[in-house]
């Protein structure tokens, strides 16, 4: 499993408790469009991702993350940037 696959698997696992519609999660899945999350769910999910990977996803960055794939990209980048 590549590091990216590993990140995707961990992100997908964090999505599950919030995946009330039982959407099949792929890189193209949209948080708002497909999972239909409101801003409060997004807040809880982002906090869970931050704690899972020990990273900071600022609200500024969140504005540019619409899909699971974009989030995996961001996590990969943020993990690499960490001291």
């Amino acid at each position: 499993m590549s590091e990216r696959d590993d990140i995707f698997a961990r992100v997908a696992a964090q999505i599950e408790p919030f995946n009330r519609k039982g959407v099949d999660v792929t890189e193209a899945t949209g948080f708002q469009r497909d999972l239909e999350w409101d801003s409060l769910t997004v807040m809880d999910f982002v906090a869970a991702i931050e704690d899972e990977f020990d990273i900071t996803i600022t609200m500024n960055m969140q504005a540019d993350i619409d899909t699971v794939g974009q989030l995996v990209d961001a996590v990969e980048r943020l993990k690499g940037a960490r001291p």
Binding site: V46, D51, T56, T58, M59, N60
Partner: peptide, 16 residues
């Protein structure tokens, strides 16, 4: 840059 912590959680603030 804006970072949120869980409502009234001291541990969450500390971690962030």
């Amino acid at each position: 840059e804006v970072v949120r912590f869980r409502h009234n959680s001291v541990d969450d603030l500390d971690r962030r």
